[in-house]
Design a protein around this nucleic acid. Structure first.
Length: 568
RNA sequence: CGGGGCGUGGCGCAGCGGUAGCGCGCAUGGUUUGGGACCAUGAGGUCGUGAGUUCAAACCUCACCGCCCCGACCA
């Protein structure tokens, strides 16, 4: 491609609205064009890169036993009512009506349709396993798009679905997909980390995310320094600091005027936070739930949601709290009845706790179970923290921000049972198909790659996903001899299968061209100029690193390029 | 949805009651050409939309719309 013909407009200044590097550089380099919040046009540079990412994904999915299909974006609302996900997606679902006023959906994902297909195409154990996949546009009306292509409302996603006869089959499919994902990230030059993840409202047993470490990421993960444990903060477990268990002391009421928070309580009575129990009230799908956890820890609402199997969890309002006769600021499980009560297992790690007295401005000292309160529902609902020991090996956990570039789930039988996808096993028993699903956001992967690979000058594309391999910069092109040589080299390289972008603009200064080359970030930069020509050579330089250009005799250019592209 | 910010030529911004400006970019001509050159000439804007106040509104008032950031939420 000749730069003079390319649909792009590089910008000299930073676009005002872009803060994250990938967003800024994609706009500056003229790769994308925003049409609305979270809706982008992909211009040729971005599109070439996206297609390379897709090609890598296709190769790996095919190698892992996948078969490519194409499912519709436009779907009847009925299907989403039937699976119950119209409610689950809520406002995130793009909806519309056809001319007969029939409610339709712009699909945010495709479990429903794939299940529908499976109903007729999977009838016997002989029809299993199957792994259909597609790369296709998804629509999600996100409450807030952000970071350019990081979070958008219309985006291309590779979604795969595994269908197996039993749990062992699912495990095998899941592992095959996980390995395909690892290959994909490696080939894209991305050191993504596979972490334990929450599987959401409709999750099965296992779920993993692939997170690319990046300060601009939306997710936080905890990773063990000593072993391979890594988990999304939403899911992470850690060893909670334990306290020596003392003999129970007598329960004692203490007046605490004006004290509402744990911090105030500790200040007022000179007690450490881990000697207190904190009370938090939630509304879970309308039911008020009393939650208690040791005072030095925080509630992980995702864990709590998963434990309660709640669709909608939020803090209870003041009115709800009052209606449930809870005393905000002085509540505890001591003497509490008639309300669901969930405790974090940290209440077992300690004794003689300072707790609320369920009377205004009053607390109790030396609360102990089972004497003073009962343990009905005890589980881990604590937010793990950086520095806490790993549950597997005891080494401290480190926190890391990152971008979610893939998510895989063991769905189990939720969709097959809800939508009726059954097969007959070898003994003639009717069984639900066991499913998994596997997603990669293609555009987000590109954005993540740029987040991972850039400097102050611009993008530094990993070779496998660069829009072109080589950026030919022609200088002194008003001189016939130079421009002829440059044109000839450009043709020659394309004939040799090397993808080139050729800056053939005759009237741009060298500085402009070099800066554009740095901004677009193709792996190799070739300079052809009067000076280079005098030496009978071409200058070749990697975009990554500060290498001085290598002077290469014209006839050796192809082989040098191949060598440098393959990492040599 | 809560909080904050911003809507003025393609981009970045100034102007904040009295004739719409600057820099970059763009076009034409000329001089330049190894890290964002220079001179000259020129094109390009219903100042987000709608109401209102005023002799007069880009500017003041109100409402709405849009975009960005933080949070909530989210596969």
């Amino acid at each position: 491609m000749r730069f003079s013909r390319l649909i792009t407009k590089t910008m000299r200044r930073d676009p005002a609205e872009a803060e994250t590097p990938s967003h800024r550089y994609m706009l500056k380099a003229g790769m994308v064009f925003q049409v609305a919040a979270g809706v982008y046009s992909y211009l040729p540079l971005a599109w070439r890169s996206l297609r390379k990412i897709e090609a890598i994904i296709r190769e790996e999915m095919d190698a892992a036993g996948g078969q490519e299909v194409r499912l519709p974006v436009l779907q009847p609302m009925e299907l989403w009512e039937e699976s119950g996900r119209r409610k689950a997606f809520g406002e995130n679902l793009f909806t519309l009506q056809d001319r007969r006023r029939r409610p339709m959906v712009l699909a945010p994902t495709h479990e429903e349709v794939i299940s529908l297909i499976a109903k007729t195409h999977v009838q016997s154990y002989r029809d299993l396993p199957r792994i259909p996949y597609q790369i296709q546009t998804k629509f999600r009306d996100e409450p807030r798009s952000r970071g350019g292509l990081i979070r958008v409302r219309e985006f291309d996603m590779k979604d795969a679905y595994s269908m197996d006869a039993d749990a062992e089959g699912l495990d095998a499919s899941y592992e095959a997909m996980a390995q395909a994902y690892r290959n994909i990230y490696r080939r894209c030059g991305l050191p993504a980390v596979m972490v334990d993840a929450d599987s959401g409202a409709i999750g099965g047993r296992d779920s993993h995310e692939f997170i690319l470490p990046a300060s601009t990421g939306e997710d936080t993960i905890l990773r063990c320094a000593g072993c391979d444990y890594a988990a999304n903060l939403e899911k992470a477990e850690a060893v909670k600091p334990s306290l020596p268990v003392e003999d129970p002391l007598p329960l004692k009421e203490v007046s605490t005027p004006g004290v509402r928070t744990i911090a105030e309580l500790c200040e007022f009575l000179g007690v450490p936070e881990n000697r207190t129990l904190k009370a938090v009230f939630y509304s879970a799908d309308g039911e008020i739930v009393f939650v208690t956890i040791r005072g030095d820890l925080e509630v992980n609402e995702v864990k709590l949601t998963t434990y309660l199997k709640a669709k909608d969890l939020r803090l209870a309002t003041e009115e709800e709290t009052r209606a449930a006769s809870l005393v905000a600021g002085s509540a505890s499980a001591v003497g509490l009845t008639g309300i669901r009560c969930v405790m974090d297992d940290s209440v077992l790690l300690g004794s003689n706790f300072l707790v609320g007295a369920n009377k205004p401005e009053t607390h109790l000292q030396n609360a102990n179970h089972p004497r003073d309160f009962q343990l009905e529902e005890v589980t881990d609902i604590a937010l793990a923290e950086e520095g806490q020991p790993c549950v597997k090996c005891g080494e401290p956990l480190e926190a890391l921000r990152g971008i979610e570039v893939g998510h895989i789930f063991k769905l189990g039988t939720f969709y097959s049972e809800t939508l009726g996808v059954y097969y007959l096993d070898s003994e003639g028993n009717r069984r639900p198909v066991i499913m998994g699903c596997y997603g990669i956001g293609v555009g987000r992967l590109l954005a993540a790659a740029i987040e991972q690979n850039h400097d102050e000058q611009g993008i530094i594309f990993p070779a496998p996903i660069a829009p072109y391999h080589v950026h030919i910069v022609g200088l002194n092109l008003t001189e016939e001899a130079v421009s002829q040589e440059a044109d000839a080299l450009y043709d020659r390289l394309w004939d040799a299968g090397i993808e080139c972008l050729y800056d053939d603009r005759p009237d741009e200064s060298a500085g402009v061209k070099f800066n554009d080359a740095d901004l677009l970030g193709l792996p190799l930069r070739l300079v052809i100029s009067r000076r280079a020509l005098r030496n009978g050579a071409v200058e070749i330089r990697r975009r990554a690193g500060d290498d001085k250009p290598v002077l290469t005799p014209s006839q050796d250019v192809e082989s040098t390029i191949r060598e440098m592209l393959s990492g040599g």
